[in-house]
């Protein structure tokens, strides 16, 4: 009997331990998250929120801050007072602005956040959904020295895995700055960033053509008298003089327009196809391995053999046979030979 008692005690002990140490839902974790919710983090998060408002040219108010931090208005105003005392923010009326010092502080936090996301994407196998949450914690921890070492290790990247720019060590970040539509080369793909609203006549002419900011376009042909673009499946001719008022930006990584949605995983054994691109979600070491095998746009690749259970599949590329898993070949875009 005493033995079964021991068994019960043991099971109880295991469940208590699980209750305390269980990831995300355990007591230990809850206690940690409460503890980490301290003042420094609130201050830094506020600065970050204020910076993002300014970067996107919207106004920040006490309400939006307490919404962002999920705190009460009273607590938020205490934070603002504290930040004002530190000389980091300056309220004007109901709006709150960052001082230059506040701005550089905020950029420092954003730099850590985006570098850490880049690190998680390239050097670990942690899933995409967790990057942001982990970076939110890490951004309050790293020292300047650690951050610079991390950046050097990552090769001083320019963009985080979401395509957002990473501020440099001195807090430099490129402004969302457009170029003239006419400066695009034939075949370039870009996003309309800005349509100048002066003079009004030109503006209404452009809008009547169906153009508006945010649209992704492709330049088909340009000459002295005409610029022809493709936009949402339609071809539009624009007078080069009108086009002077249209500014475009290069599209970010997440928005890339991939013409071919046919992937390597779709082809049957013995079919030969041409690679047109590698998805941006193949990152870090994984991407380098594939490139090293010569899996680059323009390469001819042939499915050779399926494994016993159907995954992975072996492909012939440049004289060698390489096995790829389906979750990899799903991310390699191809075009079929017979369609060409």
């Amino acid at each position: 009997m005493s033995d079964s008692l021991i068994l019960v005690v043991l099971l109880l002990a295991v469940s208590i331990l699980a209750f305390i140490f269980y990831p995300e839902k355990g007591l230990l974790n809850k206690w940690r998250s409460i503890k980490s919710n301290n003042e420094k983090i609130l201050l830094e998060d506020t600065l970050k929120h204020l910076f993002e408002c300014e970067y996107n040219s919207t106004d920040c108010t006490l309400t939006s801050i307490s919404g962002f931090l999920s705190t009460s208005q009273g607590q938020s105003s205490k934070i603002i007072v504290k930040l004002e005392e530190m000389g980091l923010v300056k309220p004007i009326g109901t709006k709150i602005y960052l001082t230059p010092e506040g701005k550089s502080y905020a950029l420092k936090i954003i730099r850590i956040h985006r570098l850490w996301e880049k690190h998680l994407a390239d050097n670990t196998s942690i899933r995409e959904e967790e990057w942001h949450t982990l970076a939110e914690l890490e951004e309050h921890k790293l020292t300047d020295d650690e951050v610079n070492r991390l950046a050097a290790k990552l090769g001083n990247p320019l963009k985080d895995p979401h395509g957002d720019p990473i501020p440099s060590e001195n807090g430099e970040i490129p402004e969302q700055k457009g170029i003239e539509l006419a400066d695009l080369k034939e075949g370039d793909i870009a996003k309309i960033y800005h349509i100048e609203d002066q003079p009004l006549k030109v503006f209404s002419k452009l809008t009547s053509l169906g153009l508006s900011p945010g649209m992704i376009i492709k330049l088909i042909e340009k000459n002295k008298n005409n610029i022809r673009i493709e936009c949402e499946g339609e071809e539009i001719n624009i007078n080069p003089i009108l086009a002077l008022n249209v500014q475009v930006v290069s599209i970010s990584d997440s928005e890339e327009l991939i013409e071919s949605h046919d992937t390597l995983s779709n082809i049957p054994v013995d079919e030969e196809v041409i690679i047109v691109g590698l998805s941006k979600s193949l990152r870090g070491q994984q991407r380098r391995r594939l490139l090293d095998f010569g899996i680059v746009p323009g390469t001819v690749i042939k499915a050779r053999l399926k494994s016993l259970s159907g995954d992975p599949t072996a492909y012939e590329v440049r004289g060698t046979t390489v096995a790829l898993r389906k979750n990899q070949s799903d991310k390699i875009f191809i075009k079929r030979k017979n369609i060409v």
Binding site: D122, S125, P312, A314, V322
Partner: peptide, 15 residues
């Protein structure tokens, strides 16, 4: 514990 380590699959099938 090994979630934080990089992972990349490749397998060559030599002749």
């Amino acid at each position: 514990v090994l979630k934080g380590e990089a992972s990349a699959f490749s397998l060559e099938l030599p002749p």
